[in-house]
Design a protein around this nucleic acid. Structure first.
Lengths: 342, 342
DNA sequence: GTTTTGTTTGACACCGGTGTCAAATTGTGT
DNA sequence: ACACAATTTGACACCGGTGTCAAACAAAAC
């Protein structure tokens, strides 16, 4: 019942282990005759390469891990799903590691994780993908990574949404609905995406000749609670904003709750929208207007890119020598939380 | 910069590799003097055991994987978080594998995953934990597993919530609020938990001398949409139920949405509650009354149990020889979606 | 036909650990 | 003091692959 090893295949085909290894790895300089003979033996014996033996010999496990902090469940689930798809397609396992951005033993914990698993690649989800010390540590240890998120200090490759267009489009939509007093809930100040989204929002106001009112900008941290808190602030202003644009859906849901708990009718008295299109937007009442973030696809591409880099990288070149960044577009998804202002 | 190997330690301590190995593995029959000498060398060299070498030699990777289908994001996130905690504590990596219950190549895909990663243990989340063919396949391949969920055909160890008490307590609470026409949304018919919860619900009615009305029982599948659909059915009955108890929170959220989209005021005109206490219950308005399912803790215990079993199981004893099942209690969490019936 | 070059193949050591078994050391009984 | 058992240690093969290098062979150049 034990699976066949490379030795079994070699014996069966009457060749050396090394030749079998050559065939498995599709190396050049193997005669067609040999290749065919070995391939037959591989099928006959039901051989499966043992990834551990390979990893030990090559000193590269090809295992990768998804490193997450702890953002919104909906965001993470979609991303994870895509990454998993990519890994499965590439016949690769995916490790998970959850850490906390502000832990001061963060780097040590991650190093320990690396030692325990010998992963040689990471997919870095936000916000952890914007932690410079971490990126530097990975560079130092020559561990490959790919970031989910926008360009950040020219570190590594990334896959992400065009956030500028996203927030620009959402804001423009609100403006088309005749909203002029638009509250904005910013993203986490440590994340690069926050600034890009904010710039897109402001651009939309400028392009439509709407004056930016600083006191309609509230700080958020991409969490539900922070959205709620920001909404509380914004809804106390007089005159009240007629719309609130939260820079992600998790916060938009918080805004919606806060409005409803004050008896403010959405969308009749307040329009609300977010960015991401995570599952909660279609589970609350009313469903939230948002901007579709192709997270599953983004995760998928990130995994595939990373794995291919690992497979090709026989000689360990330094990080980010060839930047195949991929930037995705999304689209506005109009639901029931926004309405035309009379 | 390369980490020290067992050879380095041996040289440093002036002993054989094997002796170092003995110390690492805490084997008996090592003199105190040796042990101390080796331990010092381990520290001096900064030695870290290479898990791949170990796995290859022992033919046991000690890696485990979380096998999920695709239930509610909130449920999975909490579970995953706990499992991850357990793994990290035990210095173990966690693989993720997402599959689909109804795929007819399911077993083949999982076998391929096992070949690709050489995991030797699985945490099985619902609903996949109730798939008999899978359990049999794992038994056959002598791969350890632990199930998240109630006892099922005496297969393997499990960790889970006392569902009978959960639904009994929730139903009793609704009854104390004076509700008598209580709609019930059942769980997925393929999952063992559904029947246990249903039994608890019925028991509460019986104990309180309330007649069970069959047409107030609607089939659900533990998904948001199925909760919404079931609610549509139940809310069309006349007289309308005054409360709906969905057997998980994901469905309860669906019920809430359906009620609100019909303009039914919750909790004034309809009380709603669920089971699990996943994050969505505190993100919708009003917050949903539920029964706390200590999912993080359950995941944690599952991981720890499984890993310890693997570590101890030098000789591969058959599955489930010693059943250390753990059943957790939860508690009723009263929020804003339920109210006293006048 | 001989030398030079290029391709194909296998022997062997090695990656970093563990299992087996025998040798060396220590302890016990008489 | 001796024979014998129990404990402690190390030599060596092995887990399942890959890298290096030289040997065997074929093709091209002289």
């Amino acid at each position: 019942m034990k699976t066949a090893t490379i030795n079994d295949v070699a014996k069966q085909a009457g060749v050396s282990k090394k030749t079998v290894s050559r065939v498995i790895n599709n190396e050049a300089n193997v005669s067609e005759e040999m290749r065919a003979k070995v391939q037959k033996a591989i099928i006959d014996t039901g051989f499966k390469r043992n990834p551990l033996g390979m990893a030990l010999a090559k000193n590269r496990s090809l295992f990768i891990a998804l490193l997450t902090d702890n953002p919104s469940p909906g965001y993470l689930m979609k991303l994870q799903k895509g990454i998993l798809q990519g890994c499965t397609e590439e016949h690769m396992g995916l490790f998970l590691y959850d850490c906390s951005y502000y832990s001061n033993s963060l780097l040590k914990e991650i190093e320990e994780f690396i030692d325990n698993t010998l992963v040689d690649g990471f997919v870095l989800a936000p916000p952890i993908c914007d932690k410079l010390e971490l990126l530097e540590m990975l560079n130092r240890k020559n561990i490959q990574y790919i970031r989910i998120g926008p360009s950040y200090k020219n570190q590594g490759e990334f896959v992400g949404l065009n956030y500028h267009k996203a927030s620009y489009d959402v804001a423009s939509y609100l403006i088309r609905l005749n909203h002029k007093r638009i509250g904005y809930v910013k993203g986490h100040p440590d994340e690069e995406s926050s600034f890009i989204k904010e710039a897109g929002f402001k651009q939309a106001l400028t392009d439509n000749k709407i004056e930016l009112e600083d006191n309609l900008m509230a700080q958020g941290y991409y969490t539900y609670q922070s959205g709620k808190d920001a909404a509380a602030l914004l809804l106390n202003k007089t005159p009240r904003p007629t719309a609130i644009f939260a820079s992600n859906d998790e916060m938009a849901a918080g805004v919606l709750y806060e409005a409803q708990s004050r008896g403010i009718k959405v969308p009749q008295e307040l329009s609300i929208c977010g960015i991401d299109d995570i599952s909660i937007t279609t589970k609350v009442f009313p469903n939230i207007t948002t901007y579709r973030h192709p997270l599953v696809n983004i995760g998928y591409r990130a995994a595939v890119l990373l794995i291919n880099r690992l497979k090709n990288k026989q000689n360990s070149a330094p990080q980010g020598d060839s930047k195949n960044n991929e930037i995705f577009d999304g689209e506005l998804v109009i639901r029931d939380s926004t309405a035309q202002l009379k």
